[in-house]
Simulated scan of single mutants.
Amino acid sequence: MPYLCFMDIRSFFEYGHEEYLPHLSSDVVVIGYAEEKLKCLLLRIGARWLLPGGFIKLDESVEEAASRILTERTGLNDPHLKFLSVFGKSERNFAEEWKEHLEKFGVSWKQDLWINKRFVSLAYYSLVNIPDTHPVTGPLDEAFGWFDLDELPPMWMDHRDIALMARHKLRSDIRKDLVTHHLLPRHFTMPQLHQLHQVILNKDLDRSRFQKQMLATGFFERLPKLQKETRGRNPYQYRIKENKDH
């Protein structure tokens, strides 16, 4: 959905095709981690929820659009962002959803409005540390919230399918790339990273073997100070080496 800062809502619905590419949009699955669960940032319009998204301006690339949308929605600069897939079923449009809500903005619903046409979505996913984000709603959104990926609420169109595909893709990607640190604070412990991987993969991992595998990559820098929040033996904290960040 569009993030409108300065454009009048009525003008957007009637003349948005003069600023945005018709039939093409971008949706981003923003994944966070809290309470040992994967979370997904959603926005609510009416009774259902949807992914943060927007349309692609005539003068920007699809990658620039996805990055802009993500920054506008989370407040993060240079956030992690990875292409997911294209969603473009022949019947993919939001005409009925818009018909229900346009009257709230004093806009007459017309079948031939550009916003009612079929839209193909270029979907991305992003891993974020939730405390670093500052989610906001746009003029069309009524609320935002973080939801467990295992317990998603009723969602618009195919947005649930997009979110679940992102989770599946994340499980595949972490077997090849070290990206999960984006879900944690800048400084973290190996037990925290180990638990995160268990949650993502939904299976138990041998802690000692996992730590050896992680340290063998050379991507982690051990910090000199020990974590003092727990009794007994305190694990070392680590961070990603600056020249190794993904």
Rank of each mutant, 00 (worst) to 15 (best):
V128I: 04
V128C: 06
I130Y: 11
P131T: 01
P131K: 00
H134G: 07
H134M: 03
P135D: 12
G138A: 03
G138W: 00
L140C: 03
D141Q: 15
E142H: 01
E142C: 08
F147A: 03
D150Q: 06
D150H: 08
L152G: 02
D158I: 14
R160Y: 11
I162W: 01
I162F: 03
A163G: 03
L164W: 02
A166R: 05
R167K: 10
R167I: 15
H168P: 09
K169P: 02
K169Y: 10
K169D: 14
L170D: 07
L170K: 13
D177T: 10
L178H: 09
V179Q: 09
V179F: 05
T180P: 00
L183P: 06
R186D: 09
F188Q: 09
F188H: 06
F188L: 08
M190G: 03
P191Y: 04
Q192G: 12
Q192M: 09
L193I: 10
L196P: 01
Q198D: 09
Q198T: 02
Q198K: 02
V199A: 05
L201W: 15
N202C: 04
K203P: 05
L205C: 09
L205W: 03
L205I: 03
D206A: 05
S208G: 14
R209T: 12
K212W: 10
Q213S: 01
F220Q: 07
R222H: 05
P224T: 07
